[in-house]
């Protein structure tokens, strides 16, 4: 019934969504590792990054410059949000913090609505070119961009957290607050940096997939939910786990849609998720 080329096509489809989920998941994990907080406004950074780039490109800026500028805008925005809104209530309960990030998400979405209006915006692909035929299936060039961006981001994260003094200190911060302050980084500064990283990567994810989607102010809700699912499967504090889980989620979705039922694919995915959570309460790759 379904031949091999379709299995390949489903795989590409899963890889596309999966890379996007993985990037969002990574941005959530970085913030979580340092400040033990999942930011529900991550989807808004995703949207703001993409829409900022649409605007900058339409103003005539070259793609690469618009790309860098949009990341900067989101990074600064993320840092500002952390300093002004999260820091003042960081000692409140986890419920308060969750609702605070929801409030931030509402505010940013509301602001995006006023800035970019209700209509959808299109970003042209990073490189022009026809879809590439592979084993009877087709691959869109932008998907290669998404995958390369994901790989580059992961390498950058690895270098930062494993090789630089600042990154190592930040990691220490996540594990032992006192030890971190001895290494010369305050938890405050570490949290700020983590938010900057997180919002930057969130924006990057949005910009990378924008050419495949039609972006508007409310487009961030779905990626946020999917990213959250990925970190729940992968374990909240595991970067590797969240990447694997993101890709896995995308692939499972694609094969469920392709091979089982597109009508009940979400029911199946969410049910699987609940089973994973119940039998492996801290995620497939989580510790303890």
């Amino acid at each position: 019934m379904t031949d091999f080329s379709h299995i390949v096509q489903f795989f590409f489809s899963g890889l596309t969504s999966g890379s996007m989920y993985a990037l969002i998941a990574v941005s959530l994990v970085i913030v979580y590792k340092v400040s033990l907080l999942i930011c529900f406004a991550q989807g808004e950074f995703f949207v703001i990054g993409a829409l900022a780039m649409v605007t900058l490109v339409s103003k005539g800026l070259p793609m690469p410059l618009a790309f860098v500028l949009s990341i900067l805008i989101s990074t600064v925005l993320g840092a500002l949000v952390q300093r002004m809104l999260i820091k003042p209530i960081q000692n409140a309960g986890i419920g308060n913090l969750i609702v605070m990030t929801i409030a931030i998400s509402l505010t940013l979405r509301g602001a995006a609505l006023l800035v970019w209006g209700k209509e959808s915006h299109i970003l042209k692909p990073f490189s022009s070119g026809a879809p590439i035929p592979v084993l009877g299936a087709t691959l869109q060039p932008q998907v290669l961009w998404i995958i390369s961006i994901t790989i580059v981001v992961l390498i950058m994260i690895w270098i930062f957290f494993e090789k630089t003094k600042l990154g190592i200190a930040m990691r220490a911060c996540a594990e032992n607050r006192l030890g971190a302050s001895l290494m010369g980084i305050s938890t405050d500064k570490a949290a700020l940096l983590a938010w900057a990283w997180g919002s930057g990567i969130g924006a990057l994810a949005g910009m990378a997939v924008a050419p495949l989607l039609f972006m508007q102010y409310g487009s961030g809700v779905m990626p946020m939910v999917k990213g959250f699912i990925a970190v729940s499967i992968g374990g909240l504090s595991s970067i590797v786990g969240s990447v694997v889980a993101g890709l896995l989620l995308g692939t499972v979705e694609a094969y469920t849609i392709g091979l089982i039922s597109s009508k009940f694919s979400d029911t199946i995915v969410f049910s699987l998720l609940m089973v994973v959570l119940i039998f492996k309460p801290s995620g497939l790759f989580g510790k303890g």
Partner: peptide, 19 residues
């Protein structure tokens, strides 16, 4: 086939229909 209007990719469904 069905698809979620918010999904980023629907090539899986289309590929299946193409057969």
């Amino acid at each position: 086939e069905r698809f979620d209007v918010k999904a980023p990719d629907i090539t899986a469904q289309l590929a299946k229909l193409r057969t």
